[in-house]
Design a protein around this nucleic acid. Structure first.
Lengths: 209, 209
DNA sequence: GTTGCCAAGTTAATGACAATAACTTATGTT
DNA sequence: AACATAAGTTATTGTCATTAACTTGGCAAC
């Protein structure tokens, strides 16, 4: 179902030892997850891409979930880091910067829909892992912290955690409805960046006219 | 992995013909999907619950996806109908009524997380089905229509479709983050009803002070 | 250098599941 | 009473996850 790696694997093809099978499997898994969703991902497919037998992954990962956890960690770290960049470009902690964070969140989901979906999946098994839990807290905590600073520096009296959760929910909902095609179904061609830019200021203004 | 039906199936146990296998499989699938997610659902499990062989479902459904599509249709219809009830209880088309619609949306997701997740899944195969597409449009269109009436009757000048999509995204994000445990991770014990009641009025006020 | 350890591969086997084919049983219509 | 057919069955194939038992070859100690 998935073509085997050709160009970069040719040299390794003959070798018994892969060199960096762990990395190759993670890269393959990421592509497959984004192309077919986490449900459509099979370890066997990733093995075909990497050019190894189906038993090989078990030297590097405990089981299928273990590689998915690795993907979640990678995704959370990248989302967290890209947040800083988005904020910096638009002049720091102000409404425009916070809106840029939101646009960045949605852009991430568009770029890697399968990974995004995996990161915010239902399976408690995946996110109960201590390392995954920690990276989630770091990633989401950054948003709450940023909004907290905004509220403190702009005289917003309401609980900044509540405002942060509202912003997060809104932006997360946009991302989810975009990638599953429901926004396209109801409003084809919708400019989601404009949607975010329009809504974020209203969500920031709480008891602060 | 799933216990067999006992009490109500005892009589049918001896019968060659089930009576209403289609309905029984849909009911079983719904429970399994909510308990273990759509990924954790196997047709074989549903067969064990219904007490039939694993080939039996194919007399009633084309394939596994076909029964999942049926669940999506049921879920969309129920969500659509419960929306009317929520609106009516809280005095019709006003901010309180629209907030009640939102709380109802989240309550639905809490009640049937696996079904909700299935209804808003990534797999294009499921939602490209004409009947599924139609029921989605009806369900989501109701929200847009309601917000449109609110805007018309309350002198809101901005495009009601935009406001409706913003409200939908917000409420959808709350539902998603609640059922996947991320709200609990970052804000244990959060009152999501209060969150919705707080945010909805701000999202409704667009160029309308 | 050779020896031998062990990490990183392999093949082979098991068990669950989706799907299909070929067969059987009841039901209800004529 | 006969039989057409809907609704079941068993049996089979192919895919996948996972484990066990086996090679292979790179590297470190001697």
């Amino acid at each position: 179902m998935v073509a085997m790696a050709e160009t970069p694997a040719d040299i390794r093809k003959q070798r018994y030892h892969h060199g960096d099978l762990r990395g190759a499997l993670i890269a393959a898994a990421r592509e497959i997850v984004n192309a077919h969703g986490a449900d459509g991902f099979s370890l066997a497919d990733a093995c075909r891409v990497a050019g190894v037998s189906t038993a090989a992954p078990y030297k590097h990962f405990r089981d299928k979930n273990d590689i998915l956890k690795e993907l979640i960690i990678l995704g959370m770290e990248e989302l967290h880091e890209s947040r800083h960049a988005a904020l910096a470009v638009h002049g720091g902690i102000n409404p425009a910067g916070i809106a840029a964070m939101g646009r960045n969140y949605v852009a991430f989901a568009r770029r890697e829909p399968g990974l995004f979906r995996l990161m915010f999946g239902l399976d408690p098994e995946l996110k109960s892992d201590p390392k995954v839990d920690q990276v989630c807290k770091t990633c989401f905590g950054g948003v709450i912290e940023t909004v907290g600073i905004y509220c403190a520096t702009h005289g917003v009296s309401h609980d900044p955690r509540i405002i942060a959760l509202e912003l997060w929910a809104f932006v997360h909902g946009v991302a989810a409805l975009v990638i599953d095609g429901d926004f396209d179904r109801m409003a084809p061609g919708l400019d989601t960046d404009a949607l975010i830019d329009g809504a974020v200021p209203r969500l920031l203004h709480y008891h602060n006219r």
